[in-house]
Design a protein around this nucleic acid. Sequence first.
RNA 1: GGGCCCGUAGCCUAGCCAGGAUAAGGCGCCGGCCUUCGGAGCCGGAGAUCCCGGGUUCAAAUCCCGGCGGGCCCGCCA
Length: 660
Amino acid sequence: MQTSEITDPYKWIISQTVERVKETLSELGYEVDLNTLLELVEEPSVEAYGDFSLPLFKIAKKYKVNPIKLASNIVENLSSKMPAYLIDVKNVSGYVNFYINYPEATKLLFNVVRNLGEKYGYVPVDKPKRIVIEHTSANPVHPLHIGHGRNSVIGDTLARLLRKRGHIVQTRFYVNDLGRQVAVLLYGYINAGRPKPPENIKPDKWLGQLYAVTNTLIEIYELKREAEKTKEADEERYRELVARLDTLLAVASELRSVNPELFDILAENLKSKDNEAEIQELMKKLEYREDPKLEEDLRRVVELCLKGIRETLRVLDIDFDKWDYESDLTWSSHVKKILEIAFNSPYFTYYKNAPAIDLTKLANKDLYRKLGIRLSMEIPPLILQRSDGTTLYTTRDLAYTLVKFNDFKADMVINVIGAEQKLPQAQLKLALYALGFKREAVNLVHYSYEMVNIPGMKMSSRLGRMITLDEIIELMLEKARREVEKRTTLTTPEEREEVVKAIAIGAIRYTLISTSATKPVVFDMDQALSFETNAAPYIQYTHARANNILRKHREKYGEINWETIDYKAVEENRKRKQLVKLALKYPSTIAKAADDLKPEILVEYVNKLADTFNSWYQEDPVIHELNPGKRNLKAAITYTIKIILANTLETLGIKAPPRM
RNA sequence: GGGCCCGUAGCCUAGCCAGGAUAAGGCGCCGGCCUUCGGAGCCGGAGAUCCCGGGUUCAAAUCCCGGCGGGCCCGCCA
């Protein structure tokens, strides 16, 4: 392989080395697979133990030999003819420790970086996959809140990351417009006399209020009726109901103060109706397309809400390739077809008197492992239809999953959905498998994430108690604006505002993506708003500084002269070596983050890189370096780091302003 | 009652899947650095029974079993 073909220099160095180890082992009579060896390679915990190392315990055990003896054999062989990118090999208590020849490795790094330029870090897989990512998919009944924010940021970042890995990605938003929640909103909208949305309020916010008022009133009237009935019969139950009623009345009074006219009309109109029955009727009419006027209302309300949601997402730099409507899906033949297959399936059954798919027969270790489901999970049958014949969300999701696979000819479908939906997502997979869609079942990924909590706040969008994502964005912008005014070197208001946006949005995205999805996030505003290290503005600032150094270098000395770089000088300073090593590892870091679907790996990496770079240029100045060979080395390091910072931020969906 | 996820310094987080050499960062705290490329920065310091108890192993934060604590799920909602 020519160096011009190398995209991942660190992997290249390691595999060159490991191949020699394999040969040595082979000469000693131990045949070990190359990949096995590569997997064993690890990063020593202490710098003194070298740049990378190979623990020999497993191999030694397999062949019943002393690991220290084995290590010494390997070291002897490699030392006699040192591989090009190594300077030393040592045998320490069963490990072989490898020391990189930094001048050579730096030369390799710069060759790759010069060759790929802005594309450094882009390591396409051999066989790109077609991947659909469905994310956000919020019910179009209220504005997005911080939990949706986590979903959107995860989905969008995964899309960017997988594209960087060469996959062909399509993002989709599933508009859940036939669920109960939209029906409630629609019911409220109609009973409020189809009011025109006010001009001075974002449409999703206004609809959120309408939704919350409707919901709260329905619950209040329901509770009142129930309380009336139990008053004499069951005193304990009665008291419980009254207590719940009290809380709801408090919520109602909050809601009324926000929008009194709307509240009063609905309070009057819902008072003496059987609201539950009417909503059920409404859902039925929608699913069976019995009322064109109703469909018109539905579309109007949903579009209005989506308009607001889209606006929020655009601010976060998130867009979608496709918007899918649950109603379109249901009204087309897709759902009907899947029902037909289900009714004729050997897994078909009745559960709680409703048509269902029996999934218990599929509970076996091998299948569950293949589908990524825990065997200890008890999975009840999947109910397909309500007694009135209307379908349920998961039934329609069954059809939708097939649409996602077929429409895009996808090899894999990733659903970014909260952890609270693990059970229905497992049912979905198993049902697909049961109905014969085995490939789809295996390649359907539920990317599950935990909740986002705001300290001191119990959120409920049903009751209209929540901080919206818009409000959080607004707060972040204000704070960013104050900080920028304090520190910026930029002069025009336009430039400043652009940086304000970059910082505020970056800080939100960074906070939401930096914690592993399996952990709940506490969205502490003050912490997210802090511009300290380990936050997006810190990375952006580091990038701007690197950019600044390069600009000054160019003004004073012209372009970097790669031919005159003094590679030996990389060894003069420990941090130069650390930076070279980190830069070498960038492509494999991107690859791992993408392959493991773990963007937080990239966050961890870029932080380390920024830290190291900041401390380096402080002790080892670039522009003031008098020796041209060394100066070009330093400028080339700076250039490399700048490219990596910019690429990483781009992958995380965070803007990297050249100046701040 | 059953299931899923989480538990790492005062606080937040990485490492756990594929066990390995002195547990890695950040916030906060204490002390230092503004005449050198932008102080949104840098240097130094204190701070950890890796929730607890067993087990497997030459070796456990990591794997297995049993507890404890927190969140979530167990609907003809999504």
